[in-house]
Design a binder for these strands. Structure first.
Lengths: 329, 329
DNA sequence: CATTAATATGAAACGCATTATAAATCGCGA
DNA sequence: TCGCGATTTATAATGCGTTTCATATTAATG
C-alpha cells in the first residue's frame, strides 16, 4: 500500500535516502536513518517486490523442474533445494513436468520472461537441442538426470557405477539368472545404469535373455506386474535388478502373496534408498543416491552462477553412490 | 533482451499497438497484427514479467506454505495444487515452514511485498493472532490445518469424525484396551481428532489411561519407539490409534521384530491412507484423507478469490473422510 | 590555510509494459 | 454533405524502487 514516496514524505527526506536505508548503503546520517526506519514502521511499509525486480533486473527466484513431486526421490531433492534457496535469499518455484515434454518447455519459458533468475532441471524430458535455446537467457543446470551431449553444468551420480555394483552384488551372492527392470531407454541415466549392469554381467560371462528385460517400469503396480510375468515363466530368474525401490517393493509384495521367498527364491535389489526400502519386510537392498547432497549442491551451484553471473563453462560434478545391503538379497 | 520498444520500432508501430497484440485487445488492424507478430518472432521477444507485474499489480503467483514436503501427505497436496495452478495460469512458490513459526511468518511476508497474489496455508505453526495482520494484504486461506477462531476461508476434513470412526472401528473389533498416539495438542486438528476418539470411547464407557497416551509422535522412528514403550509395559493395550500411517508403520515393523502378531496381539489403525499403508504387510487400516481433492479445492478457491478480488467472508468447506479397512485391525 | 577526500542528500533518469487520453480515419444514416 | 459512433493508432502518464549525477557539507592532509 505505502510507497517509498510516502515514507520519504513522512520522514521529510527523499526517496533516495529511504532507499539507502532499506538497502544498507553507507553515507546515511544515523539520526535520519532512524527517522526513516520509524516512518517505515509507522506506515507498515515493505518495498514492492515487482518494482525492485524491474529496476534490479533480478528476481531472486529460482525454478526447479521435476517430473513428479509425489515421488519421494524428488520430494527429498526439492526439500534440500528449498532449504538452501531460503538461506541464500531465493524463492523457489516448483514446476512439475509430469513427464511431459510440452510442460517442461513451458516451464523453461519462465527464464525468457525473466520471471526467474535460473532453472534447475531435475527432469529431462526434452533433448538438449530443445533446451539449448533457453540457456542464453540465464543459467540452466541439470541435476540428477543428464544428457551426455548437453553443454550445461550438471550435478549427478555415476549411474554406470550404480548398475555395476548392484549387479556385482547379485553375482557375488551366487546368482547367474538375473533379470532387469529399468526405465525408458530414451533416458541417458537409465541407459548408463543398464550399461553398468551389463558390464558386471559380462565380466562374469553372463547375459540376460530378452524375456527377462522389463523396460519402462516405475511404480509399485509395475513391480507387482513384473512379478506376475516372472511367475508365469517356465524358466525363472533367481534375482532381479530393479530400477527403483518402488518397483522392488511391488515385486516383493506380490512375491509374498504367491508364497515366494525373498531372497531365497528371488533376490531383489532396488535403487534410490528411499524410506520404504527400510520399511517393508524384508528390507530392500538398494543403491543409495545422495538426494540431499545432490539437491544442496545443485542449488548452491545455481546461486553461485547467478551471483557471479559467470558464463560457467560446462561443469560436471559427480557424486558417490553406494550399495546398502538389507535382506532382499 | 528485446523490449516492447524494439518490437515497436521493428514493426514500425507504437508500443501501444504491440501491447494490444500481446494482450489480444480489439481494434488492431489484421495486417499490422501480423507485422507485430513477425517482429516479435524475429526478435525472440517475450514480455518482461517484472514490468507486467509492476504495472498490472498482479504477480500470477501463489505461495503454498507446508510443514514438510518430504511428508507424502504434503507432496500429494502440493501435487494437486501445482496442477490446478498451472491450468489457471499461476506459478507456485513452495514454502516449507519446517515446523518453525518464524519461517512461516517470514513466508507470509511474501504477501506484504506483493511477491505473490495469495497464500495457501497448509501448515499452521502460528496462532491466528499472528497471521491475521497479513490478511489485509491479500487472500490467505488455510487448507487441511485450521484454527477454530481464525477468520479465514478453510478447506479441511472433519477430524472429530475421523477420530470417531477409527476408534469406533477398533471398538467394534472387540477392543477395550486402546492406546492413542497423536500429534501435538497445540494443533487444533490434533485436538479435534482426539475429541473424536474420546467421543467414541465414551459412548462405550471406555477411556485411556495416561500411560497409553503418546502425544507428539510423527514418523516411523517414533512409531518404533512407541512399540518399545508398549512392549515394556505390564498392562498392554490391544489396539492403538495412530495419528499417521508412518507412525502406524513404525509400530507394526517394530512389533514384528518382537514376534508380536498384528492384529491379533495389537491392532493398529493409521491415518491419511498414504501409499505405505497399502504397501507394508499387514496392510494398515487407516482413515483416508482426500489430499488430491483438498489441494484442488484450495487452489481453485484461491484463484477465485484473486480473480474476483472478493473479500470472501469466512468460508468453510469440509471434505469427507472415510475408513479404509486392511489387515492391521 | 588551502585543498583533496570522505560524507551526506536530493533531483531526475531508468527499468518495461500497460493504460488513459487524445486524435485521426472510416462508415453509415439523416 | 454533415454528424456521430466505431475503428485504429500514437503520445504520455503510470506503477515503484534503484541508480546516476550533481551538489553541499565536513573532515583530513600537507
Amino acid at each position: 500500500m505505502a510507497t517509498i514516496k510516502e515514507v520519504a514524505a513522512k520522514s521529510g527526506l527523499s526517496p533516495t535516502t529511504v532507499s539507502r536505508v532499506i538497502n544498507n548503503h553507507p553515507y546515511v546520517d544515523d539520526a535520519k536513518r532512524k527517522k526513516v526506519m520509524q516512518a517505515m514502521e509507522d506506515l507498515g511499509y515493505v518495498p514492492n517486490s515487482s518494482a525492485r525486480r524491474l529496476r534490479g533486473q533480478r528476481t531472486n527466484t529460482i525454478a526447479v523442474i521435476i517430473s513428479r513431486i509425489v515421488n519421494p526421490f524428488f520430494s527429498h531433492l526439492v526439500d534440500a533445494m528449498e532449504l538452501i534457496a531460503g538461506e541464500k535469499g531465493y524463492q523457489l518455484i516448483l514446476c512439475d513436468s509430469r513427464l511431459d515434454k510440452g510442460r517442461e518447455l513451458r516451464h523453461l519459458e519462465l527464464l525468457k520472461a525473466k520471471q526467474v533468475d535460473g532453472i534447475i532441471l531435475a527432469s529431462l524430458q526434452n533433448e538438449w537441442k530443445a533446451i539449448e535455446p533457453f540457456t542464453k537467457y540465464g543459467p540452466v543446470i541439470s541435476c540428477n538426470e543428464y544428457d551426455t551431449n548437453a553443454q550445461m553444468p550438471v550435478i549427478r551420480c555415476d549411474q554406470v557405477y550404480g548398475g555395476y555394483i548392484g549387479t556385482k552384488h547379485l553375482i557375488e551372492k551366487g546368482h547367474t539368472k538375473i533379470a532387469y527392470a529399468g526405465g525408458a531407454d530414451r533416458i541417458q541415466l537409465t541407459r548408463d545404469r543398464k550399461t553398468g549392469v551389463f558390464k558386471a554381467l559380462k565380466e562374469h560371462g553372463l547375459s540376460i535373455p530378452e524375456e527377462w528385460m522389463f523396460p519402462s517400469f516405475y511404480g509399485i503396480e509395475d513391480g507387482k506386474n513384473i512379478f506376475q510375468r516372472i511367475y508365469a515363466m517356465e524358466n525363472r530368474p533367481t534375482a532381479i535388478f530393479a530400477g527403483g525401490d518402488e518397483v522392488a517393493a511391488g515385486i516383493i509384495q506380490e512375491a509374498k502373496r504367491f508364497n515366494y521367498r525373498i531372497p531365497e527364491d528371488l533376490a531383489v535389489i532396488g535403487y534410490d534408498n528411499q524410506p520404504i526400502a527400510d520399511l517393508i519386510n524384508p528390507g530392500i537392498t538398494t543403491i543409495e543416491q545422495p538426494m540431499k547432497l545432490m539437491g544442496t549442491r545443485a542449488m548452491e551451484m545455481m546461486v553461485d552462477m547467478i551471483a557471479y553471473n559467470r558464463k560457467v563453462t560446462y561443469k560436471k560434478e559427480i557424486l558417490p553412490l553406494q550399495l546398502v545391503v538389507r535382506q532382499s538379497t
